[in-house]
Design a protein around this nucleic acid. Structure first.
Length: 834
RNA sequence: GGCCCCUUGGCGGAACGGUAUACGCAGCGGACUUAAAAUCCGCAGCUCGAAAGGGCGUUCGGGUUCGAAUCCCGAAGGGGCUACCA
């Protein structure tokens, strides 16, 4: 630290800016005085400003955290100064795999690790001077929190929204757990990139698909960025038709889903997913061996191999035939793994002429390709070469319904769907890409699912060797009065090979007797998403023992006015939380259909080399180091100065130094000699303009330009012979949301006592903000040729004359006639000459 | 492959359709100093010119407009999401 080397100079008695001293001092003051305790005052407007709470990892805070957290802190502090009652809470999303992995590796209980990590995170956040109401801190792993997470699960269970299913799930042997589709990336686990297989397991599922429509349509009302589009895509609402195809060898029917009912006359075969229940039924004896081999091969294929669209398609003919309802054609039934068992009906009508995948498959297996749609402009297409997938008009369709040649595709779809409905062979159908949410994890460090099952046994199922059967088909809810159902202590956290998870080994916890009947608790736990699905509601009333939150607390603060967090949560967390909120809405405990009104994603901060920060790249910036060297206010202000909040931007320590210099200048201003003589007009105007800009910019979250404006003001004030106290006072107030410790310190030096946290935000005078004389650009034929200073409201004539009195401008006009004058007062004068 | 976003000095970035490059960094010059650091004051897009001044400039190509970094179309490069969803 260069500044430490300074010998105290006798000529310089002014105190130095020393954040290491003033920052802890004010943090203590805020804590001692509970400055940021959130309370409602009748008549005040409220603002709920929420950060995505962190997972307290062992690595501690990284510089990405303070970015979003500083942004919301500025908004919160600014709002308090403008008379809002502000709820600005913080907590810990503390269940999750890393603590458990650490426990497996070291034997340390996840609880111990979690408590330690939370302490580190809390210290680091407090060191940054965020104005959280720490009395509302929540920890998702605390029994008092888990109780209500489990309570919400029971609400889902009672409404039939939580159910069990034996489904092929993403089983990750390495992690010893199943993963949600969203947690699997390219066939590998999101965490740790371990291989993932498909195996059928009993799972708890949440019926999020029942809310698919509302989750989609309610997005309209939200002030969210592109995230809305991402969620819409994820939900993937698709309007089409379901069609039943009769079978030659069976009385069963194959039901298919299609968005292209207009291509029904062009169906030349039907494909079932290999997992489809009819595969076995429809396999002809002659094909049995081949089909069995194919289905087995598919099962052992990894998800990556199966979904690799670039690989050529494979399939097997079942040896049986279906009937195309619209023309009576006999079409072969195949099984192929390019058809997904989990989407639509798990079966498709194949129209190779008008679908690329079907086309590729038909070419491979030499199946017929029959064109039934043609481009509406009459262009000839070679359908054997490539599929024609666009809409067009019907092309020589053979149908029982008398479809006319040349009918536009959209109309054909309608007609065909209507005809199918009439015939009882199908009808319109909406399908979603969204699947139900696999909600169980075969893990220890999560909320126990509050469900138990009867056990059939002759002995004590806790004893080794005693045989028992758990009746999983008779799930029972734990009595609400018994919540929380807490985790048993374990010594060994390894997942093991039992898909029931480590809790299955806690036999004393798992089995219990009631009225002489043995029961077994569910040994799966909830996924990490559970706690974060409703934490914003617990912040309303975090210490309530009797209910998740008091209705009055809900009325006081909801909905969340501003929610800031990383875009990595654009789909998963934000969709799950919205889903739970809607369920709670139906339960009647929340009153708004949507929880988060305005959403903003902060952009990632890259390393100085423009790459993602990571240990292996050696470009990680540690907030502790930065605060130690430059101070929390410098870190906060620099992160806001780097660029637009939502943009990805690289760290530059030299930029941080520049911001630190700015803070030092402001500090010097505040400490220096000040005059109570009124400021000159120029200074007064600048103060008011800056005030307006900073206020507007904070509202729009444009912190970088707000800081730039304050830099200009600070520089101007520093150049005054006499620095007006009022101007400095205003600057200190404006800067305080950004650099709150410096703000408080100078506020005190300026003669106030106590905190400026609730000091009214100064108001600007609109008259002073508006310049009377402005410099506007002058163009000749649209090219900039100079500038003139004139009154804002000068007339065209005055502007023109002033411009023409300028020799340079006149030379560009060159004595030619002025054909047209464009004059926008206060903006531009454009002279068009011949 | 599909959808979305971005592209402005040496660098981070600024700019209701109106003098492009504010503010900061790095750089250069000066003041202070025996000297340096720190601090303060200035200069600073590229290019031609001794200067006055000119030309060119917001990834590239078109378009709309009196006027385009900004709006529209197309391309290139970079990023994000998604990925056989019938």
């Amino acid at each position: 630290m260069a500044s430490m080397a300074d010998a105290p100079s006798p000529s310089e008695s002014r105190p130095r800016y020393n954040p290491a001293e003033i920052e802890p001092k004010w943090q203590r003051f805020w804590a001692d005085h509970q400055t940021f305790r959130a309370t409602r005052t009748p008549g005040h407007p409220k603002l709920y400003v929420l950060d995505m709470f962190p997972y307290p990892s062992g690595a501690g805070l990284h510089v990405g955290h303070p970015e979003g957290y500083t942004a919301t802190d500025i908004v919160a502090r600014h709002a308090r100064m403008r008379g809002f009652d502000v709820l600005h809470p913080m907590g810990w999303d503390a269940f999750g795999l890393p603590a458990e992995q650490h426990a497996i590796a070291t034997g340390t209980h996840p609880r111990t690790t979690t408590v330690q990590n939370i302490q580190v995170f809390r210290r680091q956040l407090q060191m940054l001077g965020f104005s959280y109401d720490w009395s509302r801190e929540v920890d998702t792993t605390a029994p008092s929190y888990v109780a209500w997470t489990q309570w919400i699960f029971l609400q889902l269970f009672r409404r039939g929204l939580a159910y069990q299913a034996k489904i092929p799930v993403n089983w990750c042997p390495e992690l010893g757990t199943v993963l949600a589709n969203e947690e699997v990336i390219d066939g590998k686990s999101e965490r740790g990139s371990h291989p993932v297989e498909r195996v059928p397991l009993r799972q708890w599922m949440l019926r999020i698909t029942a809310y698919a429509d509302r989750l989609g349509s309610d997005l309209d009302s939200l002030a969210w960025p592109d995230t809305k589009a991402k969620q819409l895509h994820w939900i993937g609402r698709s309007e089409g038709a379901e069609i039943d195809l009769a079978l030659e060898q069976s009385t069963e029917k194959i039901r298919v889903f299609t968005t292209r009912a207009d291509t029904l006359p062009g169906v030349t075969y039907v494909v079932l997913a290999p997992e489809h229940p009819l595969v076995e039924v429809l396999t002809a004896p002659s094909q049995r061996d081949q089909v069995r081999a194919y289905v087995d091969a598919t099962r052992t294929k990894s998800e990556v191999e199966r979904t690799d669209a670039t690989k050529s398609k494979t399939g097997v003919f079942l040896g049986s035939w279906a009937v195309n309802p619209i023309n009576g054609d006999r079409v072969p039934v195949w099984a192929a793994d390019y058809v997904l068992a989990t989407y639509g009906t798990g079966a498709v009508m194949a129209v190779p002429a008008h679908d690329e995948r079907d086309h590729a498959f038909a070419r491979t297996y030499d199946l017929a390709i029959v064109q039934v749609v043609a481009p509406s402009d009459g262009t000839h297409v070679d359908i054997q070469q490539a599929a024609y997938v666009d809409d067009g008009v019907s092309f020589q369709p053979r149908t029982r319904m008398g479809l006319a040649d040349g009918t536009p595709s959209a109309e054909v779809r309608q007609q065909v769907t209507a005809w199918l409905s009439e015939q009882g062979l199908g009808g319109p159908k909406v399908t979603y890409r969204l699947r139900d949410w696999v909600f169980s994890r075969q893990r220890y460090w999560g909320e126990p699912i509050p469900i138990y099952f009867p056990v059939d046994t002759d002995g004590d199922p806790r004893k080794p060797g005693v045989e028992f059967t758990i009746r999983y088909d008779e799930p029972r809810a734990v009595d609400e009065a018994e919540l929380p159902l807490v985790l048993p202590d374990l010594e060994d956290f390894r997942p093991g090979t039992d898909p029931a998870g480590p809790l299955a080994r806690a036999t004393d916890w798992r089995f219990f007797q009631k009225d002489g009947q043995w029961f077994a608790r569910e040994t799966n736990t909830m996924p990490q998403w559970a706690g974060s699905c409703w934490y914003y509601l617990r912040f309303l009333d975090p210490n309530n023992r009797d209910r998740p939150w008091d209705p009055q607390a809900y009325e006081d603060w909801m909905p969340v006015d501003l929610y800031v967090g990383g875009s990595e949560h654009a789909v998963l967390h934000l969709l799950y939380a919205r889903f739970w909120h809607k369920v709670l809405f139906d339960v009647g405990v929340v009153r708004h259909p949507e929880p988060f009104i305005r959403l903003v994603h902060q952009g990632m901060i890259l390393g100085e080399n423009n790459e993602k920060m990571s240990k292996s790249r050696g470009n990680v910036i540690n907030p502790d180091d930065v605060v130690g060297q430059y101070g929390a206010d410098a870190l906060r202000t620099y992160e806001m100065f780097m660029g637009p909040l939502e943009q990805v931007k690289p760290w530059q320590t030299s930029g941080l130094e520049g911001v630190r210099r700015f803070l030092e200048r402001v500090f010097a201003l505040g400490m220096g000699p000040l005059t109570d003589t009124a400021a000159d007009l120029e200074t007064t105007r600048l103060v008011h303009k800056t005030l307006k800009k900073v206020g507007d910019d904070i509202d729009a979250l444009r912190f970088n330009t707000a800081i730039s404006a304050m830099m200009i003001l600070a520089k101007h004030l520093g150049q005054q012979e006499q620095v007006p106290r009022d101007a400095v006072r205003t600057l200190v107030l404006m800067l305080s949301p950004f650099a709150p410790h410096l703000g408080e310190e100078l506020w005190q030096r300026l003669g106030a006592s106590g905190s400026l946290a609730y000091e009214p935000w100064p108001t600007f005078d609109p008259v002073l903000v508006r310049d009377e004389v402005v410099t506007i650009g002058v163009q000749v034929n649209g090219k900039s040729r100079g500038a003139i200073s004139i009154a804002v409201d000068a007339t065209v004539e005055v502007a023109k004359e002033t411009a023409l009195s300028d020799a340079r401008i006149r030379s560009f006009v060159g004595g030619k006639a002025i054909k047209k004058v464009v004059y926008v007062p206060g903006k531009i004068l454009n002279l068009i000459v011949a």
